[in-house]
């Protein structure tokens, strides 16, 4: 399959006066054209940081220490070997030099890559109409005039199940689920090649979640958009995605087709995640929680980041980081315990 997005060994650090936080510690990911990838992990595993890196919209406190991102043949950035000993001015200069220009990048944002945000209540500007917030994308990327863009925004609203006359309404006049539909309408406005959905249903209640997912599935198959679905809900992944990447401590620890990974999870963390799902059939057992706390990006353990919580750890887990090993063409895992590696 032709690759659309490739992330190679991405390392991102957040530096504030008080602490240094290693958000991403070597993330390697790729998404093919038309493919949908689920990115799972607990809060703080680095999912949102990954998404913002793709758009080159990391906050000022963040620094890319290493790695590269290519999108559709374009070099978003290549910061291989940048390290963390640059001054902030040197860093900014380097970042500007190491990829396509900011103008080129803006042509990608909202156009070829669109993002849907986690909290629909805060992701829309309260003092602009929803129509304007969809129309701005069309004006910038499609060169539409004011009226034309508004009209088209109405059509997009209808596509996501909202009456078109509501373009003139403000976000405050919509419920959470409706606002997320508005976010999706803005996301699909330019028919992007990649749609990043950052926990698009986390802030919504269950029935609305189902509607939103149904909508996304329908749009994705219609437009053959690639999808990066960020979530901590495994049900969503099995519903919407072909591939899944499990994140822990700013690294991908297991990766493969949904089928392979969910049927035969190899990493103890992935097994834990799947074991923590409630089961409707059989006896009502206690849910199995993964013991311990999620890896603290400000204070990561030596060796495998999961080792303090791992039931199967051995000496090597505490001293060395496991490399990603290939189990089959559809399944990769980073764990010393995973047998049968090729």
């Amino acid at each position: 399959m032709e690759q659309l997005l490739e992330i190679k060994d991405l390392r991102v650090q957040f530096k504030t006066e008080r602490a240094t936080s290693n958000a991403l510690n070597g993330v390697t990911l790729s998404i093919g054209k038309g493919e949908s990838l689920g990115l799972v992990g607990e809060t703080g595993a680095g999912k949102t940081t990954t998404a913002l890196s793709i758009l080159r919209l990391l906050p000022d406190a963040a620094r890319i220490l290493d790695g590269s991102i290519t999108f559709d043949g374009q070099n978003v950035f290549d910061m291989t070997g940048a390290g963390n000993d640059l001054s902030s001015r040197q860093y900014k200069k380097l970042l500007e030099k190491q990829g396509i220009s900011e103008t080129e990048m803006r042509k990608i944002r909202g156009n070829k890559i669109a993002m849907i945000f986690q909290n629909p209540l805060t992701a829309l500007n309260p003092v602009f109409t929803v129509g304007e917030q969809i129309a701005m994308v069309l004006r910038v990327h499609r060169g539409m005039g004011k009226r034309e863009a508004m009209e088209y925004a109405g059509k997009l609203l209808e596509q996501v199940g909202i009456a078109s006359y509501r373009v003139k309404d403000y976000p405050g006049q919509f419920s959470g689920g409706m606002r997320q539909r508005v976010g999706i309408a803005a996301g699909i406005a330019c028919n992007p090649e990649l749609l990043i959905a950052d926990e698009p249903t986390t802030a919504l209640d269950v029935t609305i979640q189902a509607q939103i997912l149904e909508l996304m599935k329908q749009l994705q198959t219609q437009h053959k958009t690639s999808l990066l679905m960020i979530t901590h809900n495994l049900g969503i992944i099995s519903e919407l995605c072909q591939k899944v990447a499990v994140m822990y401590g700013g690294q991908i620890i297991e990766y493969g087709t949904v089928d392979a990974v969910f049927r035969d999870p190899l990493h103890p963390y992935t097994r834990g995640l799947l074991g923590a799902l409630p089961n409707l059939e059989g006896d009502r057992e206690r849910l199995v929680a993964i013991p311990g706390k999620i890896a603290d990006p400000q204070n990561l353990p030596n060796g495998c980041y999961f080792n303090p919580r791992c039931e199967h750890k051995c000496a090597v887990c505490e001293s060395k980081q496991p490399e990603m090993i290939k189990i089959s063409d559809d399944h990769f895992v980073a764990c010393f315990q995973a047998k049968g590696g090729v």
């Binding site: 829309l124 500007n125 910038v140």
Partner: peptide, 26 residues
């Protein structure tokens, strides 16, 4: 610092427009 400003940047709007039009009104 609001999410909707990040969202506006993510739509490919020029930073000067984001600041002087979309953030200014707030």
């Amino acid at each position: 610092n609001e999410d909707f400003i990040t969202a506006t940047h993510a739509k490919g709007i020029r930073p000067s427009v984001v600041h002087w039009k979309y953030a200014f009104k707030n």
